[in-house]
């Protein structure tokens, strides 16, 4: 498995990353190197094997459906680069 420039651009779009033109070739090569290593798993016999998503699979901890947390609006908005008293501020979305 290897990717080309077009596929790299698609992955970058999905990942919300910007790739400068001068880095396209280097990043493509670097990803292909990792994908070459990953390719190793294709030789494994896994038919009939249940996927394992998590060490704790098979049980999920439940809790009472009660409110335990309070609003932290002020503290959380303070972490943003741009915010007013009630909102995160971003560039204009609707022209």
């Amino acid at each position: 498995m290897s990717i080309n420039r077009k596929e790299l651009e698609e992955i970058a779009t999905l990942a919300q990353l910007h790739i400068p033109e001068q880095q396209v070739s280097q990043i493509t090569d670097s990803l292909n190197q990792v994908m070459g290593m990953i390719e190793h798993i294709n030789g494994a016999q896994t038919s009939g094997v249940e996927p394992m998503a998590h060490p704790h699979e098979g049980w999920q901890q439940w809790r009472e459906d009660v409110v335990t947390d309070q609003s932290h609006k002020t503290a959380l908005l303070k972490l943003a680069a741009h915010a007013d008293e009630d909102h995160y501020l971003v560039p204009k979305v609707i022209e």
């Binding site: 990953i38 798993i41 294709n42 494994a44 896994t46 094997v49 249940e50 996927p51 394992m52 998503a53």
Partner: peptide, 12 residues
């Protein structure tokens, strides 16, 4: 082909 396959290997 990759994510699910890797999870099966995790089981093995």
């Amino acid at each position: 082909a990759y994510y699910l396959k890797a999870q099966k290997i995790r089981r093995l």
